[in-house]
Design a protein around this nucleic acid. Sequence first.
DNA 1: TGCATTTTTCTTGTCGACAAGAAATATTTT
DNA 2: AAAATATTTCTTGTCGACAAGAAAAATGCA
Lengths: 234, 234
Amino acid sequence: MVEKSNIDVVERRRGSGVKLVYDILRDEILDLKLAPGSPVDEVLLAERFQMSRTPIREALVRLAGEGLIETLPNRSTLVSNIDLLNLNTYFDALVLMYRVTTRLAAQNHKPADLVAIRELHGQYAATVETRDLRDMIAVNAAFHLAIAEAGRNPYFTGLFRRLLDEGRRILRLYYNSYDEQFPQRFVDEHAEIIAAIERRDLDLADHLGKIHGEQIVEQVQRMFVRNQKLDIKL
Amino acid sequence: MVEKSNIDVVERRRGSGVKLVYDILRDEILDLKLAPGSPVDEVLLAERFQMSRTPIREALVRLAGEGLIETLPNRSTLVSNIDLLNLNTYFDALVLMYRVTTRLAAQNHKPADLVAIRELHGQYAATVETRDLRDMIAVNAAFHLAIAEAGRNPYFTGLFRRLLDEGRRILRLYYNSYDEQFPQRFVDEHAEIIAAIERRDLDLADHLGKIHGEQIVEQVQRMFVRNQKLDIKL
DNA sequence: TGCATTTTTCTTGTCGACAAGAAATATTTT
DNA sequence: AAAATATTTCTTGTCGACAAGAAAAATGCA
């Protein structure tokens, strides 16, 4: 009979460790399981993931490249803070990317893209029913990313992905005050956007993307103001 | 008298090695001193820079994060190829960023920004006189980046920087067929852009940015076609 | 000779150990 | 007791060595 050690030393494929650590830490940062400003200790991570500091460090370098962590030379590395003072620059970029990606999707999409988009649209509608915020944020991001992919411009898709990631953190900040009525409206707007893309109506797609983006922005700003009034520390 | 070794073992500040390697390799890639597709050997680089593979690797991970090199797992790492088939998506993104950054600069600039922009404008005019293409490309990029900085949206600035970097590589491909008449026109257009920014005329700045971007695109496309006719391998 | 298989080589991926830098703590000096 | 200085501690940065994986070369076999 094979003896099973109580410490799981998992056999990993060479090279997979970095991706594992990167993916997990990235999710934990974006879901605010790791609070902004909290320290990221290489030695602790090495113990936690049962590997040496080298692959841990590589994952951290990648995360730093995306701005998710910050490295203070010779001292420590921290989870990046969310810059709430410059939220407007974030919103500017987000709305423009909503417009551009939706417009390009109307222009460049192929039939297979619409299948994928509709699939995610259905998933989003389902998560709205369950009222699970984490799923809603994730599926909504995936839905809009699928539209961006259909637009076939990797430069825009890349920036959009980063903006949606940052949005995961921002939305999570407002978890409690999340207004439960607006998701249904978003489902309808998503449907309109899909229709415009399918009809290849570039200007309408652009316009709907703009409205949709601006409504999300407005919603977040309202939550922001309300939280400030409630004196919630950010 | 102090004896000087013929091997320069330079005393470096701890942590500076990565930045050194990163900066040099980045420049060499963007100036096409390292040809797209050519191998990047960690051991060779370690010997060249007189340091161990660890900091070399960290620099390479960062370059990979920006898409400048590609890593084939367990095998080799290469300088990324320039995707000439999808040039149009590149141009789409570039023109939009020209527009957006110029518009935002008109909206958000402060007096100090204009000083910096004008300084680079002067430098650009000077490099046009010398007809040194490498300087022209670099200073032109710096000029437009300064405008982007004045727009104060780091998301746009980041994407724009990457696009201008990629442009360094693309322009260098066409070095020989570079048309010597258009730089002077660009100097004049730069002056118009500065004036629009100073007047805070958002729509005009946007429009001029668009025209300027499209003219660069047109120029590159013309060179592209001419090179294809001449049967130059790309 | 032509093809499959084994061996070698070459490059990357991972490790454990040590050094350097900065902050925190302890010590000395006035 | 307060300030300056020395020491310790803690985390990151770098190193040299070795292992793993894949391609290339060499070998064996029909």
